[in-house]
Design a protein around this nucleic acid. Structure first.
Lengths: 220, 220
DNA sequence: AATAATTTTTAGATTTACCTAAAAATAAAA
DNA sequence: TTTTATTTTTAGGTAAATCTAAAAATTATT
């Protein structure tokens, strides 16, 4: 069984590994809000325990054991988020920090019964897939809104940024999960995107468009 | 804000203070499953932070601040127990350890919404009162079953032992919360108690009778 | 009241996760 | 291909919560 801190490292390495192959010390340090030297220490420990493969100066990769542990934490995090939103009426921008704590509760029975209580949800309030108890989940095929071409359309099915500020902003713009959108124009000046949502024309910055995930039903 | 460990100390001191006035180092050590020397260290820290009054060699008492903090943890613990039993179908002997972890999640919003979701319960699955968000709760008047006289009757409204072994035993005997009982006899030989429950005559040991709490409607 | 037993505290170490500052390795630029 | 910049690691140290062993205070017993 891993400590609270080890679990956080594993989760962060797992998420970083979604983009790069070898996860770097500095990247982990940034995510953990700690110093690279501390990361090196922890990496050595995780390597000793068999959670990661580690070559000095080359970064880390998760072993199967490490990946399974990480997925288990991700599963817990996302199930708790569903609980908070569906049952306790939290908004999608309010759940992250609390789920960050709840994900470390160690009880398989608890999480399986929670899963059942929630009706075995397939995705969390931000559209992220929830692994089943065997760690399996569909790696859904998303397109970033920023990558759509003029005339493309689709459904908002996820976000790749979970900060409260970002999510509140989306909420205000009416850009919530399930909404249909169509790209009308891309502004030359700043790359901002004109989209049609709920029969209204709005303009969103590149930064926002980068973090909205679309399941596209138009050409692209 | 207190650490995980500080919270556990406060909770244990609070519970020990229900029986004795000055809580002793050794008693805390036994409950915390740690050594007296460690307790002394922690007590000093809690005293510095204003959670307890402490005189060397004389044990500790909670300050108002300390008591409030402790009651807050007790509230969380008991609300989570209700959640586990009412919503996730745990049995009353399965909830203690998980609630022990959940009680440390730090979010006022979470606990208030949980309270509401559960319908503002007044007591937990073991009959213990749940403090409201201001820390107030009725100090219910219980009689221990062992203290009843022959002919007395009443309702099982609580237990003063939360171990899984004890609770499973009660379950098997049909001695669950809300059941009506009547004392028929007390055995001379071993002090065990003959009681009538659900129209059946059963015999329970002194040890068991000590930990069953009755709200008496007969004479006593 | 003196001695014995118990309880509590001190002193000095250990472990975990972190730090800073400096050294070493790797990658990028001139 | 040197030089420079960046990244990563090592070395040595800190704070929190624990420990053991020994000393001090309190309580119980003769």
């Amino acid at each position: 069984m891993q400590s609270f801190t080890e679990e956080n490292y594993l989760k962060i390495i797992y998420h970083l590994a979604e983009n790069t192959d070898n996860v770097q010390t500095n990247a982990i340090a940034a995510q953990m809000q700690t110093k690279p030297a501390s990361v090196t220490d922890m990496i050595k420990k995780l390597a000793e325990k068999g959670f990661v493969d580690y070559i000095k100066y080359q970064g880390v990769t998760l072993t199967d054991k490490g990946r399974n542990a990480a997925i288990d934490i991700v599963r817990k995090h996302r199930l708790w988020e569903v609980f908070l939103v569906d049952k306790l009426n939290f908004k999608w921008d309010e759940v992250h920090d609390v789920a960050e704590e709840l994900e470390h509760i160690k009880s398989t029975a608890l999480i399986e019964r929670l899963d059942e209580f929630l009706g075995f949800p397939k995705s969390d309030p931000h559209g992220d897939p929830i692994p089943d108890k065997n760690g399996r989940f569909a790696k859904t095929q998303f397109t970033k809104l920023i990558d759509l071409k003029i005339g493309d359309n689709g459904t908002i099915t996820g976000v790749s940024q979970h900060s409260s500020a970002f999510l509140k902003h989306l909420e205000k713009l009416g850009l919530t999960l399930g909404k249909q959108i169509e790209v009308n124009d891309v502004t030359d000046f700043d790359g901002s995107v004109e989209i049609l949502v709920a029969a209204k024309q709005i303009n969103i910055s590149r930064e926002v468009a980068k973090h909205i995930l679309i399941s596209s039903n138009g050409k692209n």
